[in-house]
Design a protein around this nucleic acid. Structure first.
Length: 576
DNA sequence: GCCGTTTTCGGCCCGACTGTTTTCAGTCG
């Protein structure tokens, strides 16, 4: 299902960026940014809407509706195209470097002709920015560090971007005559937090007859900008977003072996092939073979492939060779948490602060997912831009109570997302916190504290009897902000001691706590809450990424408080 | 450029932090 809301949101954001870089009206910039978020988070598909319907979207007026309409009809927006001819794409890319905004980008471009990240790096190293207003030594250091942070994720993208591509490609290829099965594999199926390229696997009756049509359809997909390779069984393309997508076509009876081969990490595959060798078998992407006779034993079904190795089917998210083989051969694999185990969402926002949808719409959408409970946790006052007040919080509580549980049978919890201050303090005093059903507390400032201070800060937040969940504990933004530095084992122990859960924030550019730390925390007995951190109705769907991260951390349902029945959850949430 | 009215133009999320600046601009959340 193609969702063009995100596409249009991206274009509006680009328009906002370009206005900002060209020194346009700051309010206009903000309006386009707001419109971009509104369209991206709008609950209905905009494709096919006319200008009047478009204007019903919040923050979309006559002018922006006309631009969207033009895009839907013609595939482009002429004002945007004009701006694009004036500002090289690389200049806009500069603003993705942390600490580098539109103003500095414009200075770099106009004064020094810098129009790419590489040129910026060269300019700094060559001392070409000396004397440039606003670019001292420290600024240069920060820019180089920002570039380094970006390089760490390299050309990889976060899972949300890769999944969106896969979920367009797979249905498109599945519809091609001759295609029998089609699925994504690789690191995407393993739910890694970042993805280098998207691996798609398709099976056909006979590759000689059927693969050509698939390859043709694949390379002709509308968002393909470059065909890197075009063969009979393998093709590679690059999308407009710069993401590489590989398609492998296999005969139907190789499906299971191929899926196994293209899903496992390299290390996992090496282990499984070693096991095969010990059993006088050979494992490849074509199947499991008897070494003595060369005869193929099985290959059509993934579980059978594992079965021939004396292993149970292994959850894709566990296939990293981090102990899953040993566990499978001895104590057994963990029964990891799945999306169907999740009974509610404990960290969500509304338009009272920086969310897009009103309370009622968020609740309605949550009820439609079949949740047993749902917490509204808007920002607390110390995140000043959100302008939360005691009165607003209390009014929201009244509104929530009036919605009640009668209509949808879902328990509504009134919560908040507190800000953990530099000393570990939070926004409200105990007597006010006592009025909430649930307090999430998160770090939103002072990200660079030394580890000792950060550790004390987090522990102090845990020790607050009203704080029950630490939100996005490392505060990382993938490709943009490094995780905060803390002595995590000590934080984990404090969580256990105080009865505080750590969050797995499911937003695809956060996935925080990251899976590696999840596993370490779980080993020490920490409990978790897997939350969407939704700011709009469509965001409720990101929960699956958090579940994937939990699986990668080997979490079982009993360790996850929002798989519990509401009574047990309420018991956990009781202050103390 | 959108919104919400004091319906026709004024107000628009606002405070902290950082670096380079000597009084503030840019960036971020």
């Amino acid at each position: 299902m193609r969702r063009c809301n995100e596409e249009v949101a991206g274009l509006l954001q680009e328009y906002a960026d370009l206005i900002a870089i060209t020194g346009g009206d700051a309010f206009k910039v903000r309006v386009y940014e707001k419109a971009a978020r509104s369209v991206g988070g709008y609950g209905r598909e905009i494709d096919g809407m006319d200008a009047a319907a478009l204007r019903a979207i919040p923050n979309v007026g006559a002018s922006i509706a006309a631009k969207i309409d033009e895009y839907l009809r013609t595939g482009s927006i002429h004002q945007l195209e004009e701006l694009r001819t004036n500002i090289p794409a690389g200049v806009r890319l500069l603003t993705t470097i942390p600490t580098l905004g539109p103003k500095k980008a414009m200075v770099l471009y106009h004064e020094r002709g810098v129009d790419s990240i590489e040129k910026l790096e060269d300019a700094i190293h060559a001392g070409a920015l000396e004397g440039l207003h606003g670019f001292g030594t420290k600024t240069e250091e920060n820019l180089l560090h920002g570039i380094e942070v970006m390089r760490k994720t390299g050309s990889r993208v976060h899972i949300g971007i890769a999944m969106a591509v896969a979920e367009e490609v797979v249905p498109a290829l599945s519809a091609v005559p001759g295609c029998e099965r089609c699925a994504y594999a690789g690191s995407l199926r393993r739910m890694k937090d970042t993805i280098g390229d998207v691996d798609i696997l398709a099976s056909v009756g006979d590759p000689a007859d059927d693969s050509a049509a698939l390859m043709a359809a694949f390379t002709a997909l509308p968002y393909v900008t470059e065909v890197i390779a075009h063969g009979e069984t393998k093709s590679s393309v690059r999308t407009a977003a710069g993401l590489q997508v590989d398609l492998r076509v296999v005969p139907r009876d190789s499906w299971g072996a191929a899926l196994q081969y293209f899903t496992g990490s390299k290390a996992h595959n090496i282990r499984t092939r070693e096991i095969a060798v010990h059993r006088k078998l050979k494992l490849s992407e074509y199947g499991v073979f008897d070494v003595a006779t060369g005869e193929k034993i099985t290959s059509a079904d993934e579980a059978e492939v594992y079965g021939m190795l004396g292993l149970p089917w292994i959850e894709p998210t566990l296939r990293e060779d981090t102990g899953e083989i040993e566990a499978a051969l001895s104590v057994g694999l963990p029964r990891v948490v799945t999306s169907t185990d999740i009974r509610g969402d404990l960290h969500t926002h509304t338009d009272l602060t920086d969310g897009l949808a009103p309370l009622e719409e968020m609740v309605e959408a949550a009820a439609a997912r079949g949740y047993a409970y749902y917490a509204v946790t808007d920002h607390a006052p110390n995140l000043f831009m959100q302008r939360m007040t005691d009165e607003k919080a209390l009014q929201q509580r009244e509104r929530l109570r009036r919605l009640g549980t009668a209509r949808h049978g879902m328990t509504l919890l009134h919560g908040c997302e507190l800000n953990i201050g530099p000393e570990g303090e939070v926004d409200w005093p105990p007597e006010f916190l006592a009025g909430f059903d649930l307090c999430v507390a998160s770090v939103h400032s002072h990200f660079t504290q030394p580890p000792e201070e950060m550790t004390r800060r987090l522990i102090r937040a845990c020790e607050n009897p009203y704080v029950k969940i630490i939100g996005h504990p490392t505060a990382r933004i993938i490709g943009r902000r490094e995780p905060v530095d803390a002595d995590w084992p000590r934080v984990f122990d404090a969580c256990v001691l105080t009865g505080t859960a750590l969050e797995i924030d499911s937003f695809p550019d956060r996935l925080d706590l990251p899976s590696g730390l999840v596993r370490r925390a779980a080993d020490r007995g920490v409990l978790f809450s897997i939350d969407s951190d939704a700011h709009a109705v469509p965001h409720l769907d990101v929960m699956r990424y958090g579940v994937g991260t939990a699986q990668r951390g080997w979490l079982t349902p009993d360790r996850v408080i929002n798989t519990w029945p509401v009574d047990r959850l309420r018991e956990f949430l009781r202050p103390g």
